[in-house]
Design a protein around this nucleic acid. Structure first.
Lengths: 216, 216
DNA sequence: GGGGTTAACATTGTCGACAATCTACCTTTC
DNA sequence: GAAAGGTAGATTGTCGACAATGTTAACCCC
């Protein structure tokens, strides 16, 4: 049981706005390449342009938006090169996360938690959207359980980009059964504390994902 | 020879401000834990609070500043746990960068470029500040030559944190001769395309750095 | 008709002012 | 004398207005 008394961290308005924008971009509400018009969005969110601009600067820093001076901010367009680069970064982060868990975390518990997601994934077979979300949940949990603020923050950005990709492709991004098995193997490697196999599976998993996204 | 005709990217004011702030933090002009007072800083920079706040939001996203609502923004205080976490992230990024160079880059040229920095480092022996800067330049170049926008962006943040640490310690962060040798070995491993040895040396190098910083 | 100029419009960039909030100090009360 | 309450100052949060810039389309000239 956690204590009810804990330091209350009120989020700043810009950070709330940034969160909402990330979700919107990840779920395809803003299409890649689309311009974000400040006045419109500010009205929709019920804030003035100041806090909105502050929030958008965060996404610019993350590389989710690109700024063209006196023109505006645009959602990034994920080229094949971007997809490859994004997976390079994701692999770096997730390998480090997995490694940390195996070295000084409770890898057995982590492995079991990941297997729970795999079970849901198997149950959701046939529903690409649900499997996609569970896929992301798997990787998010992996990094969260590594207990590293920096890896988690960096990973968050990559996850949005991943979501952008699978959302843009929607129906094409299939192979739902194969993916459940891949994740199961990975979770088991972690559960048994097998460093080499975890590394190997993670690399292969990322390569597969690139294949699926780029050569559709 | 690069073409003179290239898309001219005028930086936005917030991004310029963010750059200046990063430099200031990295060089100890803002001490860890210090509050950034908007009005003062805006006056010093010759801009109004709007653009300044936008720039500061970028650093907040990077984790270099922490925001406390209605209180202000503060420079992070690097605890030993933070130092460890930062090196975990840096190792993840640099390993990925090195791996990419070895896999599909011109590792020989990269190795030679890195050795050039090592030479300067050997020449600067006895001047801790110069060696420190060259140390950082080495790692910056490594990631830059990997040609990955995402790794480079994430690395930039870690580098500022590194600079904060070595600056805070100043004179204590020694062992200048040992460091030149460590870097030389690493550059040679890359030059000869030795993946396993590069990985091993990079890990060891990061562990050493943590030792030097935490157990001072 | 093609190229160039101009004007209107839309959008972003910047600023100053005001409101909300917190901190620190002083005062009051028991 | 200690704790509660109140007040003044400082700082952040938010907003609306104006300036600067870029884009589009109409118009004119060759």
């Amino acid at each position: 049981m956690t204590s009810y008394i804990e330091p209350l961290a009120q989020e700043s308005t810009p950070s709330i706005i940034a969160d909402k924008l990330r979700k919107a971009i990840g779920h395809g509400e803003f299409k890649p390449g689309a311009q974000i018009v400040e006045a419109d969005l500010a009205r929709k969110l019920g804030v003035s342009r100041g806090p909105l601009r502050e929030g958008m600067q965060r996404l610019t820093q993350e590389g989710l938006l690109v700024s063209i001076r006196n023109r505006g901010l645009f959602v990034i367009d994920m080229t094949p090169a971007d997809i490859r680069d994004m997976y390079l970064a994701r692999e770096a982060i997730e390998r480090a996360a997995a490694f940390k868990i195996l070295r000084d975390g409770d890898f057995e518990t982590v492995g079991l938690a990941l297997l729970a997601i795999v079970d849901q994934m198997a149950a959701a077979e046939g529903d690409p959207a649900a499997v996609g979300e569970l896929d992301i949940a798997f990787h998010e949990l992996l990094v969260r359980l590594a207990d590293s603020p920096r890896l988690l923050r960096m990973h968050q950005t990559s996850i949005i980009e991943t979501r952008m990709c699978i959302h843009a492709l929607e129906e094409t991004y299939l192979g739902t059964d194969a993916r459940a098995i891949e994740h199961q193997r990975l979770a088991n490697a972690i559960r048994t504390g097998d460093v080499a196999r975890t590394d190997e599976l993670l690399s292969a998993h990322m390569d597969d994902a690139i294949e699926r996204l780029v050569n559709r």
